[in-house]
Every structure is written in C-alpha cells, then in structure tokens.
C-alpha cells in the first residue's frame, strides 16, 4: 500500500475512532492531513491553541477536539509508516507529543514495530521512558492489518490500551 492511501485510510479510522470513543466527552472538530507544518497551517482551531507558532513540524494526521467540560481545545496526532517502526519514528513522535502536549499520540505501521524495538519495549523501564510524554500520557503504537483494514489488536503497545483501541 502506498503512503498516501495508507494516510487516507488512517484519517477515516481516526475520525470513526474519535467519534466512537470520545464523542461523549469531546466535540470532534476536525481530522486533517496537513500539507504544511502546524505552525504555518491555516487552521482556525490550531491557531487557537497556545504556543502553536513553535510547532514547526508536520504530523501525518492531526485532529482537534473540544473538551465539552472545559471547552478547551485538544490536539491528537498520528504518524504512520509503511515499514516496521524503529526508535527513530518513536523518538520523532515523542518530540511532537511533548512539544504539543497532545491529548493522544498514535504511531502506526503496516508492519508494526521492528523485531528489535519490540523486544526493547518489553522492558517496562525502557517502555515507560520511550512512550511517556508527560502527565501520565503515553504514545500508543499499533500495527495496521492491511487485509482486514483494521487495527491489529495483537500489536498494540502499551498492552493496557489493546481493549480501548480495538473494541
């Protein structure tokens, strides 16, 4: 599958996922495949989020939600890869998530996590350091099942997110 097709599929998935999982607490404002860095994008919601002007990067997909209780705008970012994920991609989204304080950060691939990183992430200490991006928030990593056009439940890391992500 080429990258653009994969991105479009994931945009649709993210939209449906957010509606299903967060619509009781959040208003789903927009799910976007950005064409430029978030600091330069002409998006009314992004421009309302504090510090957006230093967000000189472009995630593959982002979503903006409004928290119904606090009225606060929240950002969700998703990066994708067609090859197995390495620490390079995990480190990259970790930077994006720390920088934006994203409400959720997803990283996905058609081939899940590389063998070597899979083993690394089984060490709790390392996993926590690599996936945490503050305030008990963790990057969620998963493989995409191309044949069935859905999340590969067995590939979700951290494990405790498996049910949340695939139910």
């Amino acid at each position: 599958m080429d990258k653009n097709k994969f991105t479009k599929i994931l945009k649709e998935w993210l939209n449906n996922f957010l509606k299903k999982k967060l619509s009781s607490t959040h208003e789903i404002l927009e799910v976007v495949i950005p064409q430029s860095s978030l600091s330069k994008i002409n998006n009314q919601y992004i421009k309302q989020i504090p510090n957006y002007s230093s967000w000189e990067f472009k995630p593959d997909i982002f979503a903006v939600l409004r928290n119904k209780a606090s009225n606060k705008l929240e950002l969700i970012i998703l990066n994708r890869s067609t090859s197995a994920l390495s620490l390079k991609e995990i480190g990259e989204i970790n930077c994006y998530a720390r920088l934006t304080g994203a409400y959720m950060a997803f990283l996905t691939s058609l081939n899940a996590v590389s063998n070597e990183v899979s083993i690394l992430l089984l060490d709790d200490t390392i996993k926590n350091r690599v996936l945490d991006y503050g305030k008990d928030k963790k990057i969620i990593v998963f493989g995409w099942d191309e044949k069935n056009n859905q999340i590969n439940k067995d590939s979700v890391i951290p494990f405790e997110q498996k049910d949340f992500l695939s139910s």
Partner: peptide, 9 residues
C-alpha cells in the same frame, strides 16, 4: 527525535 529515542533507552 532519533537521538532522543536512543537517549530515552
């Protein structure tokens, strides 16, 4: 991000 990944490990 790449080096951060190595450093966090």
């Amino acid at each position: 991000g790449q080096l951060i990944g190595y450093c966090l490990v």
